[in-house]
Design a protein around this nucleic acid. Structure first.
Lengths: 212, 212
DNA sequence: TTGCATCCTGACCGTATGGTCAGCTTTCAG
DNA sequence: CTGAAAGCTGACCATACGGTCAGGATGCAA
């Protein structure tokens, strides 16, 4: 990585190594799960000796925690699309776009997140009970207002949110299945676009937010 | 389990033990993933010595394979709802009902299946390339016919199927998240019904299958 | 009752894994 | 230039895990 940047500053070293480790860890955790992942595998993928991993992350748990928190940050960031919007069409469209982009660009992270939740969120339980719950409650309120304003049908806001999460997350978590059914090839740009358009159209029409 | 059925027949012994082991394995694999699951844990949960597990299932892989195949059977069975139906409203409604029932009654199995796919389907790859692909292609054809007959909008059948899988599977795989957002309590009968109704209404209306 | 196949299990083994550490090299402030 | 702090790592350790096996218990057909 650095044939030319010979004299690397301390800060940079730390930042780059942590980044490389986190990236490798994300991939390995996604592919093997927490239990199946090994520090050796992560180290190899990051191109570092195993002992070096323990210099930056004391334990496997700590490393895992960092990976999961990283994803959660990205996740929350995308979630803001909801706020700026004036109505369900804008808001939900933007949110679907953002979440689909995450599924496409960070499939490993999405899988780690899914895995974490599936196993009872041992690491993120407190986040779910605080940050996630608050975010959700806020969005439920927004949707409720949209309904009151007659911008969409009276659909249960929570189940609508679950539907958005499910449909978008699916393209990351079950990406392998989708690829297999796609003749073993990953989705093309065009297919990703179609996926997004389909989801948007069905959901927006389904909640009565599209002009007749 | 058998204070009164003292003399247990060979057949029964085998069947009951295999059943107990598979049930325990399903739970442990769901909670810990393949890598995190241990034969000891499964044995304890099944109430048998570890060595006894290896008498019925030679290796951890073999046991896991059995669990995954079990789920796949259930999954395929539910998938037949599609065939008997005459139109999208009947077919998709029945399918959603069936898959939601699976999510509710077999959350562990659903998680194991999700985990298997997320990790690249090491065990079920061949099934996905044969059985699953055939089933999917068949259903795509059915949906295409519905579209031609004007029973629904021209929605991409594959993405519609993914949407059905995603939304229903979500209630099992992300059940913990849903429970947390539900005040830490699992969904009531009523809430499950609402979930199903919401999904059905949004999707059926979204694909233009509901009478105006 | 007898002989045998099935069922069962405590004790054991080799290996892989997470983690440690002593001591090395490199950076950099003063 | 220098010394201390930060970065690095090969070798090592304790443990836990998947799997084995010899030998005992049990049901069952003849």
């Amino acid at each position: 990585m650095s044939e030319l940047t010979r004299p690397m500053r301390r800060q940079d070293i730390r930042r780059e190594n942590e980044k490389a480790i986190l990236l490798a860890a994300e991939k390995v955790f996604a592919e093997a799960g927490f239990g199946g992942a090994t520090m050796q595998l992560i180290a190899d993928l990051a191109g570092l000796p195993k002992a070096n991993l323990h210099y930056y992350f004391a334990t496997k748990e700590e490393l895992y925690r960092s990976v999961v928190q990283n994803i959660f940050e990205i996740w929350l960031q995308a979630a803001n699309c909801f706020d700026v919007a004036r109505g369900p069409v804008d808001g939900i469209s933007a949110y679907i776009d953002a979440k689909m982009e995450i599924s496409r660009r960070h499939p490993d992270g999405s899988k780690v997140w899914a895995s974490e939740v599936m196993h009872g969120a041992p690491v993120l339980q407190d986040y779910m009970e605080s940050t996630l719950r608050e975010w959700t409650d806020g969005r439920v309120e927004i949707i409720r207002r949209w309904i009151e304003e007659g911008q969409m049908d009276p659909v249960d806001p929570r189940h609508l949110l679950y539907m958005l999460w499910a449909t978008t997350q699916h393209y990351a978590d079950f990406g392998h299945q989708i690829e297999t059914l796609n003749g073993g090839k990953s989705l093309s740009d065009r297919q990703w676009r179609e996926a997004k358009e389909n989801i948007k159209r069905v959901i927006l029409k389904g909640i009565g937010a599209l002009p007749a």
